[in-house]
């Protein structure tokens, strides 16, 4: 998966869990939980959405990578096919 595709999946997943926000406008290294006021359930939904849309298995140990858009995009670019 190219970094560009990964970012698109992430932006789309974030729009679903935080519908009234504009995730594309977030700095790539901002903590999305703070910036978008996500609680743990939102974050789980976010990871679930990404796991399903990318077809990539995401372990609990990998969650910290998804704290930022950049981290999530890097992870998917490496691990998703």
């Amino acid at each position: 998966m190219t970094p560009q595709q990964a970012r698109e999946l992430i932006t789309s997943a974030l729009s679903q869990v935080a519908p009234d926000t504009d995730p594309a406008a977030l700095p790539r290294d901002a903590d999305i939980r703070d910036a978008l006021e996500l609680d743990s359930l939102d974050f789980l939904t976010y990871v679930q959405t990404l796991s399903e849309s990318s077809g990539c298995r995401i372990e609990e140990d990998d969650y910290p990578a998804f704290a930022t858009i950049a981290g999530g995009a890097d992870f998917l670019a490496v691990h998703a096919t």
Binding site: S40, L44, V47, S51, R57, E59, E60
Partner: peptide, 17 residues
């Protein structure tokens, strides 16, 4: 919780909540 979640897809994992 960690042990239980380990083998599950994200959709079936439990939160501490």
């Amino acid at each position: 919780l960690r042990e239980r979640n380990r083998d599950l897809p994200v959709s079936r994992r439990l939160l501490p909540a």
